[in-house]
Computed example of a mutant assay.
Amino acid sequence: MKTPYHPPIDSIPFTRVLHALSEPNRLKIIRCLHENIENNCTAYTIKLDLPKSTVSHHIKVLREAGLIQARIDGKEHYYSLRKEEVENRFPGLLSAVVNVKEEDL
């Protein structure tokens, strides 16, 4: 199984992060990861009521924007926030995202 690419946090432009966060379902994934620490793709498919292919696309965008990382265990991919790295690079960003009211998404 191919290891997912995780870009170095210092190479990520702020505009790429903002683009990744511009989609409401991706914001919901970030918020869920902030609460649950780690989840697999199936959890988001159920929670967001989206096809697995759509959830996989959203996760890829978030991963390539440097916001999340993947851990592979057998055939499962588990995702988690790169909290410390993102906070160091973009202070206050994650707290702003997770504090947005659900109805404002």
Rank of each mutant, 00 (worst) to 15 (best):
P4K: 01
H77S: 14
S53R: 06
S95H: 08
L21I: 05
L50K: 02
D49M: 06
K47F: 08
V17C: 06
P24D: 14
F14Y: 14
V86N: 03
V55L: 00
K75H: 14
E103N: 12
S11V: 13
V98Y: 03
I59V: 06
L93N: 11
A70F: 05
R82F: 00
D73R: 04
E76W: 09
S22E: 06
R71P: 05
A96Y: 10
L105F: 11
D104S: 11
A70Q: 12
R71Q: 12
V86Q: 02
H19Q: 14
S22N: 09
I30E: 00
L18K: 09
E84G: 03
D10M: 15
Y79P: 06
V100H: 01
F14D: 12
G74Q: 11
A96D: 10
A96P: 00
K47S: 11
D10S: 14
T54N: 07
T45E: 04
N36S: 07
S11Q: 15
L62P: 00
A43E: 04
R16V: 03
C32K: 04
A43D: 04
F14Q: 12
Y79W: 06
A96F: 12
S11M: 13
E87C: 08
Y79C: 08
Q69R: 15
P8S: 14
I30C: 03
P91N: 08
L93F: 07
A43P: 02
A65R: 00
P7G: 06
G66L: 02
I12C: 15
K75C: 14
E76H: 05
R16F: 05
L67K: 03
S56F: 08
Y44Q: 03
P4L: 08
H57G: 00
H34V: 03
P24S: 14
H77V: 10
S80I: 05
R16H: 06
I29Q: 00
C41Q: 11
K2A: 10
C41T: 15
F90G: 07
S95F: 06
H19I: 13
H58K: 00
L27T: 15
K60P: 05
C41D: 11
D104A: 12
F90C: 10
R16A: 01
E23V: 15
R31E: 10
S11P: 04
